[in-house]
Structures are given as C-alpha cells and as structure tokens.
Write a protein that binds this DNA or RNA. Sequence first.
DNA 1: TATAAACTGTTAGGCTACCTAACTATGAGC
DNA 2: GCTCATAGTTAGGTAGCCTAACAGTTTATA
Lengths: 146, 146
Amino acid sequence: MSVPLIDSELLVLAQSFRTTLRHAVYLSRSMDGDGELTTMQMSTLSMAAEEPLRVSRIAANLGIRVPSATEQIIKLEQAGLVSRTPDPTDSRAVLVQLTETGRSAWEDAGRRRNERVAALLAHLDDDDRATLAAALPVIGKLSRTA
Amino acid sequence: MSVPLIDSELLVLAQSFRTTLRHAVYLSRSMDGDGELTTMQMSTLSMAAEEPLRVSRIAANLGIRVPSATEQIIKLEQAGLVSRTPDPTDSRAVLVQLTETGRSAWEDAGRRRNERVAALLAHLDDDDRATLAAALPVIGKLSRTA
DNA sequence: TATAAACTGTTAGGCTACCTAACTATGAGC
DNA sequence: GCTCATAGTTAGGTAGCCTAACAGTTTATA
C-alpha cells in the first residue's frame, strides 16, 4: 500500500459495489414473500442448529441489539421452533436451541428457498455462474471486516 | 435446458448465494448508521437525479408499494430535498424532482459512503477485488430477473 | 356526450423489526 | 459481604412497510 489516500479506482469499485448491495437487499427481500420464515428467522435458526447459543451471540451475529434478538427468539419459541433453557454454567445466560419441529421447519424452508434461488441462477450462463461463485467468498470476507 | 429438474450443483450455489445475500444485507445496514440519508433515500434521490419521476415509477424501482413511496417522498420533500409537482401531461400524476439542496446532499452523502466502502475494499488484495468487480454485473442481472 | 371503468396518488390504520432506557438476577473481584 | 460488571427481559417509542378506502383525472364506451 504505497498510496496515501484512497485511490480513485477503489472509489469507482465502491460505487458499483454500493449499487449492487442495493440490488442484493432487493433480492433478499423478494425471497421473503409468503407466509414463510423470514430471512432473519432462518439465520437465527441456522445458528442455533449447530449448537445451543446464547442470546447475546445471536444478536451479535445478526447485527442487532440484544432486546431485539430476545423479541425474535421469544416468537420462535412461541412457534415451537426453539427452546430457551438457562445455561448450566452461568444462570444469567440463556441457551437457545432448535426443537425437532424447528429443525425440520428450518430444513424445509431452506430447501424451498434454495430451489427458488436455483431457479433464478438457472437463467445465468456457465461463465456468469462461475464468476458469481468465485465472488461469494470475497463478499463474505468483506462482511467479516465490517 | 435439457435438465428436467433443478440440478444439485445449482442448489449448492444457491445455498452459498443465500448466505452471501444475508451478509450483503448486513453490510448494507452497517453502512446506514449515523444521522445520514438512508440507503432507500439515496436510491430515491438517485432516481430523481436523472429526470423528474412519477411516484409509481419510484415505488416500482424500489420494490415497494405506492403508499410507502409517497410516505418516503413526503419526508424528503419536508427535508427540502425533492419537489413534488403535478405532471403537466396527466394531472393525476406527480413528478418528483431533486432540488438544489437535494442534489448536493445526495452527492455529498454518496461521496462519504463511497469513501467508507472504499476503505473496506482496501482490505482486499488485487485478485479479490478483480473477482468482486467481475461479479457485480452478474448480481445486477439477477436482480433484474427476479 | 354522458357515464362507467381504469388509473395515480393520498389518507387512515395496523404490523413488525428495530432501537434506547430502565430493571432483575446472577456472577466476579476486592 | 459489598460493589461492580454482565445476561437477559420489559417498557415504550420510531421507521418503514403493508392493505383498504378514498378523491381526482383520464380513457373507453354506449
């Protein structure tokens, strides 16, 4: 990095990236639609799918505050998709865990969403798909940086 | 299309793409932050920046309903960033247009956002940046399909 | 040309997801 | 044992979206 300020090529890329981010948000919203689980709910469930997780961890991962996460989690609990139990090692903390119902609802919804997205991707040619596939980890890297 | 069902490679890509979409939404939200113009407001302004635009066109472009667009536009008008005038060729319609204030506010905010995003992109190496740059139009294509 | 139908936008009312501030209960350090 | 920090919930508020109902304008039709 020999350049002291932000170089203009980077600014041009930033501009396009911003536009694309907007498209992505649009796409993401258009996936939600029906009476299904929302994207946020899906994310929450997928986190809790691997291992019991604290509310604060879930909030951090979703990029929201703890009270907002509590709210969402309570709804998922009322729907019977997750359980909340006190952490045995620290009874202030609460462990959120998928129920059986939650796991299958999550898997089903994931499958349906994948099919819808796949149908979209089917419109691309092979080159475009390869280009896209290559870029996904890069965007992941960026979101970890931010 | 000789394939009758959705092939499994496509499903795998769909899965990664969904994850990345979530990251993108996260990134997009993290850009908004302060007391600045929101992403949606920026989009609205950038549409109206080119030529006076009808409320219904703006709503369609943003992927929201007309009443929601009206709401946003009225706020922008109250902030002095856009003007609303009846369309001379059809007095049911309303043309939304940037004011001088609106244009400079939009340009300033755009610059600041570009700088922030550029700072993020500066963390990537050249290969990653090239990969990302190549993929942006593909995502644009997808959002037009959806 | 009068009348019905279609269209553009606003208003009204409601829902959801987020926020901050204040609180409860537990844990950790001196 | 008392204080301070930490994990989560509760309470109250805001912003952005929605549908339904409405007013005004244009277009089609009899």
